[in-house]
Nucleic acid binder design. Structure first.
Lengths: 214, 214
DNA sequence: CGTTCAATTGAGTCTGTTCAACAGCGGTGG
DNA sequence: CCACCGCTGTTGAACAGACTCAATTGAACG
């Protein structure tokens, strides 16, 4: 429950946590909102994104169970967050969490590491968005999803996508059509299998990795 | 000197610091190198970037005097760093810096904030790379440079670019030619002035800001 | 004053977009 | 049970923005 806060102190956390639920597409918070809360995902998936005035959207990341949400926020959130699927989140008041944190310097250090990991991921994504072709972007995305599925213990090189083609497009800086075409191109080349629209199998991981270039 | 470490303890820092100099184009460190050092820039500018196998480059950021370099590193650097101009850097051994840090929790907190600021910048850049047009990207870049120049006290809406067109292109996910063409287009529209190739004036900041969209 | 490298400009090409039609699938209600 | 609807995803054809390749201009430096 509220997995991932390393050791002990679960009791202290229990006292300040609120459980909140979201339906697919529901907003957790919007960019620019005051940021009184931090969340941890116990079930479901969340997308983080930024919008331009005219509605163009860039998804900056997808969150999975165990991930934190809103940690980076200073006074206001720097991005919007929506549930992709049905999701259960644990909500903490930042102020109360801060109190606990000052008692636990190692946790603070852990948060710092997490921020750095996120930063490294963001830089990798910049490389993807700025310099990779559509095919390379989709391949990179799929390898990333595979890695995540592997961490979660899925042995076989196959996994389900929690997000729609539209989400993938907005994550990779492409259009839905290009993502769809690239999926079928990869399938026709034998680099991936698509048992259903939201399930992907990867017969030869090394081959797909090669298609990501860098 | 080694500006920007908030308060006191300059003496302690002095004991563990080494001053290193770099010529334009010189490598500070490469992606994947072991990361024993953290740097602070006392003079000059540095570019951070990642490469693909075939040489395609994505610049993830430019650093200015006062900025830190290599903080985010875990065991190895996640990106390469090169001096753009002549640069003086203060070098610290991570291990020694860590010792000081444990004595100074507020500094650690400050580092965390800095990482979060970097993360927010990275997300803004993702929006730029994934969803903005060439013109919008260049406009965003120029506004960013202007903001930085303004922070440094330049009152007028004009500033010098520390980096080449090639660096700008690799930062914005464009080619040199497109950057150049976009500069002239913005000039012909009266949105910017170009007294010299490396100097930009912005007669109407709001107008240029409008050209950045989002 | 010539060399060299960076930046600009031009012409043609291509990758990915746009616009549009169609297929698949789940849900709903007659 | 199945026709209808709405939504997501796929496919096709034409278009456009940025790229590639090439030539020219400009600026810095010896």
């Amino acid at each position: 429950m509220c997995s991932a806060i390393d050791t002990g102190r679960i009791d202290a956390l229990d006292r300040i946590v609120t459980h909140v639920q979201f339906r697919p597409g529901q907003t957790v918070f919007d960019e620019g909102d005051l940021a009184p809360y931090v969340y941890n995902i116990s079930r479901g998936h969340v997308r983080l994104f930024k919008l331009l005035q005219d509605g163009r959207r860039q998804i900056t990341g997808f969150l999975n169970p165990g991930d934190f949400l809103g940690l980076a926020a200073r006074k206001t959130y720097a991005y919007s967050a929506e549930a992709i699927s049905d999701a259960d989140l644990c909500r903490f008041k930042v102020t109360e969490l801060e109190e606990l944190l000052t008692e636990m310097p190692p946790v603070r250090e852990r948060l710092y590491e997490m921020a750095n990991d996120e930063l490294a991921a963001a830089q990798e994504q910049m490389l993807c968005l700025g310099r990779k072709t559509a095919k390379e972007r989709v391949a990179s995305f799929l390898i990333g999803q595979l890695r995540h599925a592997a961490d979660c213990g899925a042995g076989d090189a196959a996994f389900d996508l929690a997000m729609s083609r539209s989400d993938i497009a907005d994550y990779l800086g492409l259009t839905i059509e290009t993502v769809s075409r690239t999926f079928t191109a990869l399938r026709e080349e034998g680099l991936i299998g698509l048992p259903t629209t939201h399930r992907v199998s990867i017969p030869d991981v090394a081959a797909l990795e090669f298609a990501t270039e860098g």
